[in-house]
Design a protein around this nucleic acid. Structure first.
Length: 385
DNA sequence: TGCTTCTCTTCGGGAAATGA
DNA sequence: TCATTTCCCGAAGAGAAGCA
């Protein structure tokens, strides 16, 4: 059998980049230690399997030395204002997949003589973020009190996502890489990102996060699209302790006004301020995290800092305790409306049906194959040949 | 002996339905 | 209203059989 001469440094780099200790791979690759010491070379098939296991493009393993992979986009929201260090393969693969979708949709819309979306890049950092938040709300057609008319956070996220798609924005909410349930996206690493483009803007939200937090991330990423190129270039920030730079602070403020308008909050405050947990009452009404509603109440001078930070500390501790509890179940095809994006999936399926795109490309863009792709198309009302 | 290929099983994601 | 269960898939892993 043919063995492949591969740099032991590259093998070690691939394994460490995937965050896998050698013990985790030794079962599948018993000679891995010898490969990394340069005492033995893997076969072609073994190297292919190794690339798959470490989520490294196969060709990278033939480079003379480990590549320096730059972050493909500058903005992404992280937890706790942490600056991103080494970027995980899961995040990188997610960004690359979203960039492929965006590039395809941009070409598709260019071919269809689509007009650029006027709201992309319509705001400036010198603008009032509150006014931008109100404009975002107006364009999406979300009237006063819309969140009180939906029952759950789940419905609120779905309604917001649908309103975003109506404006021609690809909105993807996913907690894993594609449909690979073995590759969960780490919310400690990022909460979401925006890919600005005036023909095919895209927002991505990490659904491993709490529903209430997803609402804020959606709104935050939306604000990035409003800033356009001016909003790119800085790292993400969760919005509680604002030192994440001008752009992040701007987007957080616009998102806060978008989700919790000052006028509505002031009107509601007298009714909830004597509740056992007023921030939770506000959160339930506006379908945002209690942290966001509490912070908003503090910024508007409705409550003092001590009350907010007491609540914040207790809430964070409670979230940590509850984090391990999860529920299973679900419907695969319903999930695709979030993972692929209903609007995007429909466009790809129509393009495949009309022969403007090959089925292989359609499979690649949606992450679905063969019968699964056909079944999802059928459920969306597209009859494929 | 070491490796490849194939088949079968297990895992785990989440919206919606159902039950308490 | 909240908790639990259902459904369906792709990916990964284990094991068996065969090959060099």
């Amino acid at each position: 059998m043919t063995r492949v001469a591969v740099s032991s440094d590259l093998l070690r780099w691939a394994r460490e980049r995937a965050g896998l200790p050698i013990e985790d791979l030794i079962g599948r690759f018993p000679k891995l230690a010898a490969w990394e010491r340069g005492e033995l070379s893997p076969t072609f098939n073994q190297l292919e399997s190794f690339a798959k296991a470490t989520h490294v493009p196969f060709g990278y393993l033939f480079l003379p030395e480990p590549p320096d992979l730059p972050m493909p986009i500058p903005d992404f929201r992280t937890l706790g204002n942490r600056q991103p260090g080494a970027v995980s393969p899961d995040l990188l693969d997610t960004i690359y997949a979203m960039q492929r979708r965006q590039a395809w949709l941009r070409e598709e819309r260019l071919d269809g003589d689509a007009e650029p979306l006027a709201f992309v890049g319509s705001a400036r950092l010198s603008d009032d973020p509150g006014a931008v938040g109100r404009e975002m709300r107006r364009l999406l057609g979300l009237g006063d009190g819309w969140t009180t008319r939906v029952r759950t956070w789940q419905e609120a996220v779905s309604a917001l996502r649908a309103a975003i798609e109506e404006q021609g924005i690809i909105a993807v909410i996913n907690g894993i890489v594609g449909n690979d349930t073995h590759r969960r996206l780490n919310v400690e690493e990022f909460r979401g990102f925006a890919l600005t483009d005036d023909l095919a803007p895209l927002v991505f939200v990490n659904s491993a996060d709490a529903k209430s937090a997803q609402m804020f991330t959606l709104a935050h990423e939306l604000a990035h699209l409003w800033l356009g190129a001016e909003g790119a270039g800085l790292s993400g920030f969760p919005g509680i302790f604002p030192d994440g730079g001008r752009v992040e602070t701007f987007c957080d403020r616009a998102a806060a006004e978008f989700l919790v308008p000052a006028a509505e909050l002031r009107a509601l405050w007298p009714q909830v301020k004597r509740d056992a947990s007023p921030f939770e009452s506000l959160a339930s009404a506006f379908k945002v995290s209690p942290i966001v509603s509490g912070r908003r109440a503090m910024d508007l001078g409705l409550t003092d800092r001590a009350a907010f930070f007491d609540f914040y500390d207790a809430y964070v501790q409670r979230e940590k305790r509850q984090k391990t509890q999860g529920v299973g179940g679900g419907s695969f095809y319903n999930n695709q409306n979030l993972r692929v994006g209903r609007l995007f999936a429909l466009q790809v399926m129509r393009a495949a049906k009309e022969g403007r795109i090959g089925f292989k490309d359609a499979y690649d863009l949606t992450g679905l194959h063969g019968g699964t792709f056909q079944e999802y198309a059928s459920r969306l009302g597209v009859d494929l040949p």
